[in-house]
Design a protein around this nucleic acid. Sequence first.
DNA 1: ACCTGAACACCGTTCAAGT
DNA 2: ACCTGAACACCGTTCAAGT
Lengths: 227, 227
Amino acid sequence: MIAPQKKASAKPRARATTKPKKAAPQASKAYHHGDLRRAIIDATKAIAEESGAEAFTLREAARRAGVNHRAAYRHFQDKSDVLAAVAEEGFTVLLARIVSTLEGVPASDPEARLLAIARSYVEFASENRGAYRVMSGPRLNVEANYPTLEEAITNCLVLVRREIEAGIQRDKLRNVNAFDATLALWAAVHGLATLVITRRVQVRPALVGSLTERLLGDLLSGYAKKK
Amino acid sequence: MIAPQKKASAKPRARATTKPKKAAPQASKAYHHGDLRRAIIDATKAIAEESGAEAFTLREAARRAGVNHRAAYRHFQDKSDVLAAVAEEGFTVLLARIVSTLEGVPASDPEARLLAIARSYVEFASENRGAYRVMSGPRLNVEANYPTLEEAITNCLVLVRREIEAGIQRDKLRNVNAFDATLALWAAVHGLATLVITRRVQVRPALVGSLTERLLGDLLSGYAKKK
DNA sequence: ACCTGAACACCGTTCAAGT
DNA sequence: ACCTGAACACCGTTCAAGT
């Protein structure tokens, strides 16, 4: 059995030839790179998608961005700081996606709104595996570092909680404890996303959303037989 | 349900016969380690509990076991193999715990049995944080390595599925798709355990079980208001 | 202001012994 | 049979420049 073959010594330096798109963000700033912070973040997501978040190294990310590994320190404090930046951006994008999806679901149907949230969450994870692996990786902020990351996560949880409370108020959801219900829902989508990402449950990308609605729909209805 | 089976793969021999608690590591001079495999596994769990699974290094584990880092290679193929061994043992112990707990819950109450499984799972995670961090870490067997680990996980899932099927047959659970329901339940307990382990939800260890029953109990009953 | 280079202590893994 | 030692390529991080 062959070990995970290391990159044989000095890679030919993949000189990323600058990121495509983006017209010219370097107006007066005469960067050497253009936007190294962006490039490092993108490289990190790519590495995480290819080989898992634990395979990420500062040096490899810098290599992909075409710079010396020390250059990253100009934009990030250390290795964890890069992961925190990726995670924070991920939660921010996820929240935006959820909010956008909810615009299409009537407030009169709280159950459908919760399902839409679940669907958005798991689809996001499935479509952004690199970012999600970082987001769901070892907690970066136990020591109360990364307050903006913590805030991005809290924003998501608050949104879910409000939806549950709104549903209860409209008398469309049972009068459960909203905090508990938020945790339970979040746990369920997190767990499901993990199963999908790790391919413990195999599902074609296009079907991730419907799988989520099916599984979570049953959960929201409950398994216990009505008396 | 399949028996734990012998540890396949390249490990030459299990030495599992020297299981008894070594009262004192006294004895010989040249002193081959009593059970280095055991010591490495325990050290790995300790490291994972203290600093997270990603902080585990072969060299540190060997250091704690009091041997040269090369000695570990006599018992494990490589770094991943150590993590796989820890994970496999964890799932085996978890299964035993669940089975033991279920003995005290009547077959006539499937919902209580599912809650007991959930409770066992999250309590195990809470009480064995090191092992659980490894078990829930990056998937080790994507390349179809570690078949015995895969089997240990499957054994757990099969047990859950059978409980659900039994509940449906007794007409105590709604006639949901058993496979889907298994995934949903597993996802929920995995997600909840992750929230507890990472302290995103803060709860005293003694209350983990009741928190789990409360949250999952609501889920099993469903959030949707009965019409 | 932004990036590079050398240095240090650490890792996983291999080859080659030591007992 | 079980363990140690030296070596190699890699990593994160620091100090100190180069442009």
